[in-house]
Design a protein around this nucleic acid. Structure first.
Lengths: 339, 339
DNA sequence: CTGAAAGCGCTTACAG
DNA sequence: CTGAAAGCGCTTACAG
């Protein structure tokens, strides 16, 4: 009597148990037609009883679909990244797939991983979250795995990228509405705490901010760089307020974390929010409603859903292979107590 | 002239380019000794120039390490899960590995995935985040992949689990300190908004709450079930306050999200915090400091780090294979404005 | 120090 | 409708 090996059964063992060959098991697993109903039933029964799951390695090596979806982000963070991944997972799970998550803060590293996802055949396809814009200097090659971009879109000049799907948000309209709201409320000296200049949303929001401000006479706009995170924002804002006698009356932050950091500084300086200075965020992360933060609602979970669905449409051949889908999500402004 | 195939080079092509066989390339890639320095240099150069990355499928099929670390959670959520995964990723990235993330809210599904991780050879090892306690009714089998438990620990009766590492937190001490703090502040009628009873932390905190309360004469404790999320908490707390003329003067929540939901209800009812009723959370998620929430600091990122390191120690044979490491992290209480 | 060969678990034309 | 066979990209004893 020997110890039961925990090694799971492979396709050959399942085949033996079902009295067929592995070819037939493979067909049943893939739900291919052309298997006799009784045979199929028998095989399915054995599969169920033994909890058989085909090895992704065997499949992957043959170049077949593995169900693995690559998710590439700059870093994992509560809020934006986490919520998008939650959305992606919702959809991927429905199809029995799994997430291969890789985070690469460095631009070169990011691009490297993307190449490895795209060309490497390790995943069925990949979803890129807020990639650095330098990515588009890389050419997409014929035969690369399908990719979907979250919160980014390649410039039309980018080589080979015209078949890559994208999900973006309408930063321009949202910023225009947001600035309009602030002006209507009587704020006149606006400061934008800009996001990273190497990602699309960072660029677009800064640009839209200046454009929106320029539409309003008597309103001034300043773009302040370097406040990309709550921690950075705290020192940048603190320093700015101390250096400028004439305080701004509105901080328009790139995202909610930055806005919350800013609020902390203002509170510590006993500056009234929103009477003296108002603050707006961006994203509407789960916590912002609680914090009473006026912000722009970015549907993060939905973005994850849509990204996954777009990828699956491509994978399933429901999209023309030589074309790309582009979806732009609306972002309503969400006015709460900080404005 | 033909289009350049984007398919990445495989080990044989690299070998040809370097004028050796794939055996040698394999040795170089794995940094094995016993390769002539000049040969090694030549191969390494070719690898670098062509961005060669060995296929995980090829490796995996041979049963070798792939660098893939399985992460199994109930669901992705900003806060607890996201921060732990961030911690895990920090360590896994250092070693050039990747995360295979799977989320399974259902208990059966969770257990199924765990079996597939443990026995399936799809990952080098797995980290389980807050697994359902039913998991321990499954026997760990000889030859299963190493597993590390985050925020859980198998009962000593659990079959085969004595070689599985675990990271837990000292719920008992933290709860005792927390209740002690509340009593010292003058609160007497405490209500615990309990967490899920099917996970260790939920059980332990409820138990520790009642124990701690019983140590203080004239202090009463009630455990309220069903408020596991912010949304659930809102209705449970609302209903409770309306059903009971005599209000409690302290809500001790299972986690910060529940506490924040509770605070929203109290605010909407114009109940003073902390004068009339105080609220405490648990976890100290990134936003709790901002919210001024008194809570228990659970080092989530560090827990991820430690879990990954523990797993790697096991994988690298630095831990005895027939033993398990158990680490219990301390949780200081973090007093802010809600108590 | 290096190479030739077997084999991991699958899928997929090809035969029958 | 089913099976036999090749081969995906690796690693690893085994030979030399």
């Amino acid at each position: 009597m020997r110890t039961i090996a925990s090694k799971p059964l492979n396709i050959i063992e399942i085949a033996k148990l079902a009295g067929v060959t592995k070819s037939t098991v493979s067909r049943v697993v893939q739900k291919q037609s052309g298997v006799a109903p009784e045979t199929r039933a028998r095989v399915e029964h054995v599969i169920r009883v033994h909890h058989y799951r085909p090895s992704v390695f065997g499949r992957g090596l043959k170049g077949a679909r593995t169900g693995l979806i690559g998710v590439l982000g700059r870093w994992m963070e509560s809020g934006f990244t986490a919520e998008i991944i939650r959305g992606i997972d919702d959809e991927v799970k429905k199809r029995g797939g799994h997430l291969w998550c890789t985070f690469a803060p460095g631009i070169d590293e990011y691009i490297d991983f993307w190449r490895s996802f795209a060309g490497g055949g390790q995943v069925d396809g990949a979803i890129l979250i807020a990639p650095p814009l330098d990515l588009y200097r890389q050419a997409v090659q014929h035969g690369d795995k399908p990719t979907v971009l979250c919160a980014s879109k390649p410039p039309s000049s980018a080589k080979g990228w015209n078949t890559t799907g994208s999900l973006t948000v309408d930063n321009q309209t949202a910023m225009r509405n947001l600035v309009g709201h602030l002006v209507a409320k009587g704020y006149r000296r606006l400061v934008h705490l800009a996001g990273p200049p190497d990602i699309l949303d960072g660029q677009e929001r800064s640009k839209a901010f200046m454009e929106s401000v320029s539409k309003h006479p008597h309103v001034t706009g300043t773009v302040l760089q370097g406040a990309w995170t709550a921690v950075l924002a705290k020192s940048v804002v603190h320093e700015y307020l101390h250096a400028h006698r004439q305080h701004p009356d509105a901080f328009v932050a790139f995202n909610d974390a930055v806005a919350l950091g800013t609020i902390e500084v203002l509170k510590s300086m006993r500056i009234g929010i929103p009477e003296e200075i108002c603050v707006t965020g961006w994203d509407d992360i789960p916590f912002s409603a609680f914090a009473g933060l006026s912000t722009v609602h970015l549907p993060m979970v939905e973005m994850g859903w849509e990204a996954a669905r777009m990828l699956f449409r491509k994978l399933d051949g429901k999209t023309r292979p030589d074309e790309a889908e582009h979806l732009t999500l609306d972002m309503p402004i969400q006015i709460r107590q900080t404005t």
